[in-house]
Design a protein around this nucleic acid. Structure first.
Length: 272
DNA sequence: AATCCTTCCAACCGCACGACG
DNA sequence: TCGTCGTGCGGTTGGAAGGAT
């Protein structure tokens, strides 16, 4: 027996939002905020919608700082690089792209960027495609691709756990040069001290242990970062990585007052 | 013009997690 | 410590829109 549903699905409206509903939600949130309670919000706002639906609509569509479409090459590179290193952690990837939402990035990857990346990687000969039997497992039957009712080719889940690298695409991602439109890297950016085990900042008193810096699942028991080669070598890419994997990125963002405005909304304080 | 096919994306679903009583 | 609740996340789906035949 699972937990009770968040709302009575039979009584709330579902499906596409009407302009009137959008207007109601937008004006309510702008006037009152969310009140920290999305479940109670629909009733207060006079909407016959599930709280989760309201939250999703606001975060993915109605927020004033949302961008839709028009992805730049720079954003493409960031998405590809992060996807190849951390996989489908869309919220983390989106947090590196101001104005983008996890849903938007996910859709963009699934519909456009994945194909683009596959084509590019295939051309360079460094390609292992998700769902490609030879790339996944000696036991090709462990995975399959399916065609959905709507016609999309959608990859089925592996029937057995796969090492993360096997389902990922390898890129020769060009260096991501800083651009003003991108979220700034927190000033705590660090450089590898050369020992492979400890990361040192400037000044050296801020040295931190490797497992304090990276997401635990990205750091093997032997303290080796398993996906560093996706960035063309970890040592040269510390600026980009530091912004992605600091466990308390939001706190650092806040600490860097001049960059505080760039902290993406909804960014978790701890990335677990 | 009609039909079929493909692409795209908004929205839904269920699960995991943290906060709180 | 445990149960409940709200939130956040990633995977999945439905259907509209546009292209191809």
């Amino acid at each position: 027996m699972g937990r009770a549903p968040c709302c009575d699905k039979a009584r709330v409206k579902r499906g596409p939002w009407s302009p009137e509903e959008d207007r109601q939600l937008r004006s309510y949130v702008q006037l009152n905020g969310t009140g920290g309670n999305w479940i109670a919000l629909p009733q207060k706002a006079g909407l016959n919608r599930c709280g989760k639906s309201c939250r999703l609509r606001w975060l993915n569509y109605l927020r004033p700082d949302i961008k839709h479409g028009g992805y730049t090459e720079q954003e493409d590179h960031i998405i590809c690089s992060l996807y190849s290193s951390i996989g489908s952690r869309w919220s983390i990837i989106a947090s590196k792209l101001p104005g983008r939402t996890d849903n938007d990035v996910k859709n963009y990857w699934n519909t456009k960027l994945k194909k683009k990346a596959m084509a590019a990687s295939r051309a360079s000969g460094a390609f292992t495609a998700p769902g490609t039997p030879t790339a996944l497992s000696p036991d090709a039957s462990a995975s399959s691709s399916v065609t959905s009712s709507s016609g999309d080719v959608r990859f089925a889940m592996y029937s057995q756990p796969q090492p993360q690298t096997q389902g990922l695409i390898h890129f020769d991602a060009p260096p991501c040069k800083p651009q003003t439109e991108l979220a700034p890297v927190p000033p705590a950016a660090i450089a590898l001290d050369g020992t492979g085990g400890v990361w040192a900042s400037e000044p050296a008193s801020h040295a931190v242990a490797l497992d304090d810096v990276f997401l635990p699942e990205l750091v093997g028991g032997d303290q080796l970062f398993p996906y560093g080669d996706f960035f063309g070598g970890l040592q040269d890419r510390t600026l980009e990585l530091s912004a992605c994997y600091f466990p308390n990125m939001a706190e650092m963002w806040g600490a860097a007052s001049e960059h505080a405005h760039a902290k993406p909304q909804g960014l978790c304080n701890t990335m677990t």
